[in-house]
Design a protein around this nucleic acid. Structure first.
Length: 204
DNA sequence: ATAACGATTAGCT
DNA sequence: GCTAATCGTTATA
């Protein structure tokens, strides 16, 4: 919204996915749907580096589900998992290189009422978007959002420049919920921020 | 056609 | 810390 800065250009996403994941902290994701507007300040992300990354959905080449990851940067990849959850990624790197950043957590800064309505009743505000599935829920995203161009004018989901987080305020640690390539420290979060996905030890 | 499992979460011990 | 919930995707036959 006003004050959230300019819409991030496609070139922002057309870079090394690890750099993009770190640089997305402090940026604003905004969702505009028929039922309203919600915006979230990102505080936690993860990088997935495509065919070279055993933890990535793109690891063994394109499938119907992961096809969008192999396309141009700036598109959404929303997948359904555990029979009940949706998680949202933004495709990064040049066309043909399947990498993406998983949006893991954030602070709802606008449209809090709508975000609350999309979550179970009674959820604390600091937990509204704490976790990738919770964040996707706040934004009203499901697999139908896959392919959305977050750079296009009038897109229902866009990213704005917000206030970038300086490197010395960023913690890097292992990614969550994966069993392969666990050692790659490609989860990034804002140090000491209360809106990160559920309480974890510092440095983790 | 079928089986195994997952980039999770909430609730309970 | 442990586990049920729940179904699309993927691999295998």
């Amino acid at each position: 919204m006003a004050g959230a800065g300019r819409v991030l250009p496609r070139a922002f996403f057309d870079r090394d996915v690890v750099d993009v994941a770190r640089d997305l902290l402090g940026r604003i994701v905004e969702s505009r749907t028929p039922d309203g507007f919600v915006s979230v300040r990102l505080v936690e992300t993860e990088a997935y580096a495509g065919e070279d990354d055993p933890a990535s959905h793109a690891w063994r080449g394109p499938t119907p589900r992961s096809a969008v990851m192999f396309g141009p940067p700036g598109r959404l990849y929303v997948y359904f998992t555990y029979g009940m959850h949706h998680c949202a990624n933004v495709v990064c790197g040049p066309d043909g290189i399947a990498s993406a950043v998983l949006l893991r957590a954030g602070e709802v800064v606008d449209g809090v009422d709508l975000a609350r309505a999309r979550r179970r009743p009674g959820v604390a505000d600091r937990q509204l978007a704490s976790g990738p599935a919770n964040l996707a829920m706040c934004l009203g995203l499901d697999t139908g959002g896959t392919g959305t161009d977050v750079v296009a004018a009038g897109s229902p989901l866009r990213l704005r420049s917000g206030d970038p987080v300086p490197d010395d305020a960023v913690l890097a640690g292992p990614r969550v919920g994966i069993t392969r390539a666990v050692e790659r420290p490609w989860r990034f979060r804002v140090a000491g921020n209360p809106y990160v996905s559920r309480p974890r030890r510092a440095g983790g």
